[in-house]
């Protein structure tokens, strides 16, 4: 069978043939070949598949691909000249907000959704924004610090 849909990912248009039951995660990874988006559980339990759809963080393993048709999708690979994404990447690198890197794309996407709505989140707001993302390496501390650093970068603050 299969149906054809258009996906707008990182400001690029992709025309793909999909099955109705295929998840957005599967299509992004296997059909479009953007493997930065991970999958760790396929049950909405780990968040490593998180992408941003129309400005909001969603689990790409819990969204069927056809649901994303026509929507604006951002993955960790990102689009050129995205200042916010660049700041988040820098924050994670400077503060050591990752170890094995497997959960990182999901965290970066959740951070993107958070900071685009709330550029100066409190520690508590950061924690809440990340409840849907599991990390097993870092104990989260440096991830929170990374987002705080990214927040400083976008608001032009100097580092102490």
């Amino acid at each position: 069978m299969g149906i054809k849909i258009i996906l707008n990912i990182n400001s690029k248009r992709y025309s793909v043939d999909i099955e109705p039951w295929e998840t957005l995660n599967h299509v992004i990874r296997e059909k479009i070949g953007l493997t930065g988006t991970k999958k760790g559980c396929e049950t909405g339990g780990c968040g490593s598949c998180t992408v941003v759809v129309d400005g909001k963080a969603v689990y790409s393993c819990m969204m069927l691909a056809f649901q994303a048709s026509g929507k604006d999708i951002l993955t960790v690979e990102g689009r050129d000249n995205d200042v916010l994404l660049a700041a988040i990447r820098k924050g994670f690198m400077e503060m050591g907000g990752l170890q094995c890197g497997y959960c990182t794309p999901g965290f970066i996407m959740s951070a993107y959704a958070l900071l685009s709505m709330n550029p100066k989140p409190s520690r508590e707001e950061i924690k809440e924004a990340f409840v849907g993302n599991l990390c097993r390496c870092t104990g989260y501390v440096k991830i929170f610090e990374s987002v705080e650093r990214a927040s400083q970068i976008i608001s032009g603050d100097k580092r102490e």
Binding site: L34, T35, G36, T37, K38, T75, V76, E77, G78, I88, R89, F92, M93, G96, L98, G101, Y102, T104, P105, I108
Partner: peptide, 11 residues
């Protein structure tokens, strides 16, 4: 980190 923050890790 340089590759992971860009989704360029290879698993």
């Amino acid at each position: 980190a340089l590759r992971h923050v860009r989704g360029m890790g290879k698993f």
